[in-house]
Amino acid sequence: MSRRYRKSRRDPGLFEIATTSDWKVSAAMAAVCILAATVIIPAMFGSSRMLSGLVLAFVPLAWLMAVLFGSISVIRFFQQRPPASPPPPRPPAARQAQPVVRATNAPLSELDKALLARSSAPEPAPVAQEAHPTVWSRALIDRIEWKRFEDLCCEFYRVKGIRAETTALGPDGGVDIRLFQDDTDPQRCTAVVQCKAWNQAVGVKPVRELRGVMAHERAEKAFFMAPNGFTDEARAFAAENRITLLDGKLFLAMLERLPEALRQQLLDFATAGDWTTPTCPSCGVKMAARDSKRGRFWGCIRFPKCRATLQMRAATP
Rank of each mutant, 00 (worst) to 15 (best):
S2W: 06
R3M: 08
R4P: 06
R9H: 13
G13Q: 03
F15I: 14
I17R: 14
A18T: 07
T20A: 11
S21W: 09
W23D: 12
K24Y: 11
S26D: 00
V32F: 13
I34S: 12
L35Q: 13
A36C: 12
V39L: 14
P42G: 01
G46R: 02
S47L: 15
L64W: 11
A66P: 01
V67H: 02
L68N: 09
F69D: 00
G70D: 02
I75V: 10
R76E: 08
R81D: 05
P83K: 03
A84K: 08
P88S: 15
P91N: 06
P91K: 07
A93K: 09
A93E: 10
Q98G: 12
V100E: 03
R102A: 12
P124W: 11
A131V: 14
P133D: 04
T134P: 07
A139S: 08
L140W: 03
I141G: 04
R143S: 07
E145H: 09
K147G: 05
F149K: 03
D151A: 07
C154G: 05
K160D: 03
E165S: 02
E165Q: 04
G173Q: 05
G173T: 05
G173E: 04
G174Q: 03
D185T: 12
Q187H: 08
P206E: 06
A215M: 12
A215P: 03
E217A: 06
E217K: 06
A222F: 01
N228T: 00
A238M: 01
E240F: 06
R242S: 13
T244C: 03
M254D: 11
A261R: 14
L267P: 06
L267V: 06
D268A: 14
D268L: 12
A272K: 13
G273V: 00
T277V: 13
C280W: 07
C283W: 02
V285T: 05
A288D: 10
A288S: 12
R290K: 10
K293R: 15
R294S: 14
R294V: 14
R296G: 10
F297N: 02
G299T: 00
R302P: 00
A308K: 02
L310S: 12
R313Q: 11
R313W: 09
